[in-house]
Amino acid sequence: MSGKWLARAGKVWLVLILIFLYAPIVIMGAMSFNASPFYQLPFEFSLNWYAALSENDAIRTAAIRSVGIALATMVIATALGTAASLAFFRYEFRGKFILQTLLFPPIAIPWLITGTAMLIFFFGIGLGRGTPSVLVGHVALALPYVIVVVSARLATFDRTLEEAARSLGAGAWTVTRRVTLPWIMPGVVAGALFAFAVSFDQFVVSYFLSEPGDATLPVLIYTSIRKGFTPEINAVSTIIIIISMAVMLVAARFSNFGGDR
């Protein structure tokens, strides 16, 4: 009797948590369709804010910049990260453990510290603020994620397949291209999507590294919020959250993240 009651209470708890997690996001999305600029109720459906969004040059440029940086981050981080994962998988060498441990500072240290440190260093070497600096920072943040995801997939790879290919006369490049890559491809795709998401959603590091004139979308949103915001920001935020959730859903499919299969 009490077991059943507990199980039911547990499920209610789970539902409450899901409401807690999703309600604000849903409300924000709903408000972007509300005609009132002061979020007043009753709700009156309107697409005005999306129309206004499409004419807002600052937001549009920032959005294009954000997507561009995220795509570039994705390509660079995936290439470098996959290469590094392959090296960790294939070779035994001294210092391997240290190198793998070094992947954690970029993930574990608060972005505030990493971001300000990058600002100081990039200024010191003359790179300064701006899109190139943001890109350099984003790739560094995304790299550990790519390496972790691709390495997880490589861990399921049967090493003797590479040996078999070599025994059949295939050189390192052929082995990689025809045997290893086809197997780890789902991991590489998932890693790439993670990299995209890390960059596209990144605020802190972008905030310190971007020039006022060429802000990324999250930086623009932050400054707008602090100035006093309009539902236009709701509209763009809604779009962002839909994109980033969609990207992560696809990534989860590929990496089999949390799946039992």
């Binding site: 049967d158 003797t160 040996e163 078999a164 070599r166 025994s167 059949l168 050189g171």
Partner: peptide, 14 residues
Amino acid sequence: VERRDIGMMFQNYA
């Protein structure tokens, strides 16, 4: 390995 011109069969077949 790849230039020794051998044929190898693995325990798990690979």
